[in-house]
C-alpha cells in the first residue's frame, strides 16, 4: 500500500516487476571491487584459497550485488525536487556469489514517502530487488532508498 504524498509520480510502477541483467560476475570485477575497498580476505582475492574454503571460485563480497542494481531502476517521474542522494541500502545475502556466475535482477517499487529534515522536504523512493544466479537460486535481496530533495 503506497504512502500518500503531495507530489505526482508514476503510480503504475507499483506491483510491476522490472527485470534487468544479465550481469556477469567476472574475476576482474571482483578484483577491482575488493582492491578499491581494501577487502583482502583470501576467499575474495584468491581462487585457490576460495576453493580450499569450499567455494567454487573466488567469492564476491556480500554487498557487491548492489553494484549491478545501480542505474537499472526505472524513473518514477516524480514531480518534485532537484537533487538526489543515496539515503539507505540494505543487502541480505542468501547464497554465495562467485566468479563466473551470471546474475539477473527483479525489482519493484516498494514505497514513496515524504519527510522533513535539515535540508527541507525530502521524498524517499524505496526499491526492492531480488538477485538470482544462473541456476535460479536467490543470491541476495537488496533494498535501496533514494532521496530527492528540494
Amino acid at each position: 500500500m503506497p504512502t500518500a504524498i503531495d507530489y505526482e509520480y508514476d503510480h503504475s510502477l507499483y506491483g510491476v516487476e522490472h527485470e534487468s541483467g544479465p550481469f556477469d560476475v567476472t574475476p576482474e570485477i571482483i578484483a577491482t571491487y575488493t582492491r578499491s575497498v581494501g577487502e583482502d580476505n583470501p576467499i575474495f582475492t584468491d581462487a585457490d584459497a576460495a576453493r580450499a574454503a569450499g567455494y567454487g571460485n573466488v567469492v564476491a563480497p556480500p554487498t557487491m550485488c548492489a553494484l549491478f542494481e545501480r542505474g537499472e531502476l526505472p524513473d518514477i517521474k516524480l514531480q518534485f525536487g532537484r537533487r538526489q542522494f543515496h539515503g539507505g541500502q540494505r543487502v541480505e545475502p542468501r547464497a554465495p556469489v562467485v566468479a563466473g556466475d551470471r546474475l539477473t535482477a527483479s525489482s519493484h517499487l516498494k514505497d514513496v514517502y515524504t519527510k522533513t529534515g535539515r535540508s527541507g522536504t525530502m521524498v524517499h523512493v524505496v526499491w526492492e530487488t531480488t538477485f538470482r544466479n544462473q541456476d535460479g537460486t536467490v543470491v541476495a535481496e537488496v533494498q535501496r532508498s533514494q532521496v530527492v530533495r528540494e
Partner: peptide
C-alpha cells in the same frame, strides 16, 4: 568476524 557471516546489512546514510 571473518568472511561469509553477514546475513543482513542495513545502513542509513
Amino acid at each position: 568476524a571473518g568472511p561469509g557471516v553477514v546475513s543482513d546489512l542495513d545502513l542509513v546514510f
